[in-house]
């Protein structure tokens, strides 16, 4: 089955991940810009990081027949440093010309501070101005409800088309409001701190498969890109069809990401081919 991994931090992963993903059906990955595990000091460091994920990573993925797309952004955690953030934002538009860059992300809140909000809003406005898709991170654990609520309030005050916005890392307590407001949502399968494959399938069964993306967000922390395949298995073992799985794990990413003219992977549909049985002729 063909699978698209819509949120994947390849920079933090090994070539073996690419190899095994290719062997297990992954045809494309999308890499948002994120926090490196430490706060960076210089805008130039971000520029090189954006070059790495938009120019070098596609070549690494291509070695395994996987397409690689990327997003550029000042991530929510480092957005607290507004001076650095504005310097980075000045550099971002040049990357929108890159053939593999499909939008601005991941942006949003980490601790839901005023500084984060200033940079979040500036990046949403930049994305709209440059016709870029938007990927929004929502906070982890105890801050998730407050951060998601504020995210929706900020977006409501801006001129954004909800269809072009993906709000990621939603869970049972935050999934409904973004869906009701017309946004795309993402379930992030992450050991311990986010959603599990079983719970993701629960939410698919509760809310339907429209406007949702499932991802592993595999990064430098404890994470596993193959939770996506585990989720496919969980869906199938509950009796959902292969086509259902294709719709969720391949076609939905195509529908959302296909709003960018750079995304050229098309939705697929299983076809039953009637094979004419060969006539056995006696010897």
């Amino acid at each position: 089955m063909q699978i698209i991994q819509p949120h994947y931090h390849a920079i933090a992963r090994t070539a073996q991940d690419y190899e095994k993903m290719a062997m297990s059906g992954v045809v494309a990955v999308c890499e948002p810009a994120f926090w490196a595990g430490f706060d960076r000091k210089y805008a130039g460091t971000f520029v090189d990081y954006f070059r790495q994920i938009s120019e070098f990573e596609p070549t690494r993925a291509a070695d395994y027949g996987i397409r690689h797309f990327s997003w550029v952004a000042m991530n929510p955690k480092e957005a607290e440093n507004t001076t650095l953030s504005h310097e980075v934002l000045e550099q971002m538009p040049q990357f929108f010309q890159n053939p593999n860059v499909i939008g601005v992300g991941e942006i949003g809140f980490h601790k839901t501070t005023r500084n984060e909000e200033e940079i979040f809003q500036a990046q949403v406005e930049m994305a709209v101005q440059h016709h870029q898709l938007i990927l929004i991170h929502t906070p982890h654990l105890g801050d998730k409800v407050r951060g998601t609520k504020r995210t929706l309030e900020v977006l409501a005050g801006l001129n954004v088309d909800p269809e072009r916005v993906w709000i990621d890392h939603v869970e049972e307590h935050t999934v409904k409001a973004p869906l009701d407001a017309g946004y795309w949502v993402g379930f992030t399968l992450y050991p311990i701190t986010k959603c599990t494959p079983k719970r993701a399938v629960d939410m698919i069964e509760m809310y339907g498969r429209e406007r949702l993306l499932v991802n592993s967000s595999a990064d430098w922390g404890p994470s596993d890109p193959f939770t996506l395949q585990e989720c496919v298995m969980e869906l199938r073992r509950r009796g959902h069809s292969v086509q259902d799985a294709i719709e969720i794990f391949h076609n939905n990413p195509c529908h959302f990401l296909g709003q960018s003219p750079k995304w050229d992977i098309k939705p697929v549909r299983l076809e039953e081919i009637e094979v004419e049985r060969p006539v056995l002729t006696p010897r």
Binding site: L141, E172, P191, I192, T193, T196, K198, R199, D202
Partner: peptide, 14 residues
């Protein structure tokens, strides 16, 4: 703590 939180949520979901 986080591991136990995750396991409890998993039971709730079941």
């Amino acid at each position: 703590f986080l591991e136990s939180r995750c396991q409890l949520i998993e039971i709730a979901a079941m």
